[in-house]
Computed example of a mutant assay.
Amino acid sequence: MSIEVQNITKSYGEQKALDNVSFSVKKGEIVGFLGPNGAGKSTLMKILTTYLNADEGTASVNGHNVATTQKDVQKSVGYLPEHNPLYLDLYVKEYLAFNADVYNVSKSRIDDVIALTGLTPESHKKIGELSKGYRQRVGLATALLHNPEVLILDEPTTGLDPNQLVEIRDLIKNIGKDKTVFLSTHIMQEVEAICDRVIIINQGKIVTDKNLEKLVTEVEEQVIEVEFDQEIASELLASLENIANYKNVQGTVWELTFNTEKDMRPTVFDFAQNNGLRTLQLNSKSKNLEQIFREKTKK
């Protein structure tokens, strides 16, 4: 496993930030780590990168224990914190050269990460002259200097405009072809575009850990929106198989909720035919990641 977390607990005074958290991440996965503000995301990331110690439990990255073999963890992890610390008065290559000395890697690696992160057009500038998007690229380039097997990214697209967001998103997805990526974000579209798997944390506890595709397709109920060609008595809808709820949206449009994963559209169509009705529209309404997130994190 690239990342292994077992029964991690961390408190700040009486406030428990992480409460018996456990999960693992396989090599090559891109995992989205989601949760409301204060849920414990950054705390866990700081533990995995050795910036903080857990109160209880164990964690390892690439087989290295984060508490007892910190140097080995730091060598195998690339970390981009939420507030990307940069020296704005340094030139891009100057800053990367400084970090290359810290990591004790060859200066030839600088040109490699500049090309990889798309920094070439701006590499002659001071960091303070760069846009927010290019500053994030500098942070990613720094995290990649020592060619780590695991990238841990804390809110990598915060504050970016839509164009910059897409650029950084595509960059992370490209990097993820060769590395394990563990990233936190509040942007659901980002997770849907990049990630293979989603872990949702709420109030310090893991509430969901699933493959992204399964998460949005495995539902315990099905919602169908149907428009009939004429008004219908609500009592008639109660006879539908597996019906759990029915709500009049507007006029002859109804929202029908069934407590089954079975596709109920043929059943609704047959119901209309049997009752002398025509269906003007008949759509299955699947939940998106944002709706699932709200359900899992509501108090």
Rank of each mutant, 00 (worst) to 15 (best):
T217K: 12
C195M: 11
T142D: 15
N53A: 14
Q6N: 14
L282V: 01
L18E: 09
E56T: 12
D72L: 14
L130E: 01
I243S: 03
E155G: 06
Y95A: 00
Q70A: 13
I199S: 06
N202M: 06
E190Y: 10
G276Q: 05
I168A: 03
I152L: 00
N245H: 12
E155M: 05
H124I: 12
I224F: 11
R137F: 02
N104W: 03
G176Q: 05
N275A: 00
Q222I: 08
E56R: 13
I110C: 00
I172K: 03
K27A: 04
S284T: 14
F33L: 05
G63S: 06
L165H: 11
S106K: 12
A115F: 08
Y103T: 01
S11D: 07
Q164N: 03
K214Y: 12
F258P: 06
F98Q: 07
P81S: 08
V207C: 06
L144M: 04
D89I: 08
E129R: 13
I172L: 11
N20W: 08
K75I: 12
K287N: 12
R278D: 13
S42K: 06
S11N: 07
L86D: 06
T58F: 01
V102I: 15
G118P: 01
I200D: 05
V113H: 01
V77D: 10
T217R: 13
L160M: 01
K177V: 02
G251R: 07
S234A: 13
Y12R: 04
A67I: 12
E295T: 11
L236T: 14
D89L: 08
I3M: 09
R169V: 05
N99V: 00
D111I: 06
T120Q: 15
Q230N: 13
L183G: 02
V138L: 06
N259M: 09
L88G: 00
D229N: 11
V207S: 06
V223S: 13
H64N: 15
V25M: 05
F23S: 04
L119T: 02
G40P: 10
Y95S: 02
L165Y: 05
Y12G: 01
V219A: 15
L130K: 00
L240S: 05
Q230G: 10
K214C: 02
I8R: 07
P36A: 09
K16P: 02
V5H: 08
S11K: 14
I110K: 05
V198H: 01
A272Q: 10
E149F: 07
I152P: 08
D229G: 10
G40F: 04
F182I: 00
Q273V: 14
K299D: 14
K247R: 15
R109H: 07
N248A: 03
A233T: 15
D270Q: 15
N99R: 11
A238R: 13
Q6M: 10
D178E: 15
I201Y: 03
I8T: 01
Q15H: 11
L160S: 03
D111Y: 01
V66N: 04
N99L: 12
K26C: 11
G276P: 07
Q70N: 10
N283R: 09
N283M: 07
N104Q: 13
L256K: 02
K173A: 06
S106A: 02
R265W: 10
L165S: 12
K177L: 07
L90S: 01
E225S: 08
A233D: 15
V207K: 03
T120W: 00
L80S: 09
S42G: 02
E218D: 14
K173Q: 04
G78V: 07
E231Q: 12
V249Q: 11
Y51I: 12
V105A: 09
N7V: 03
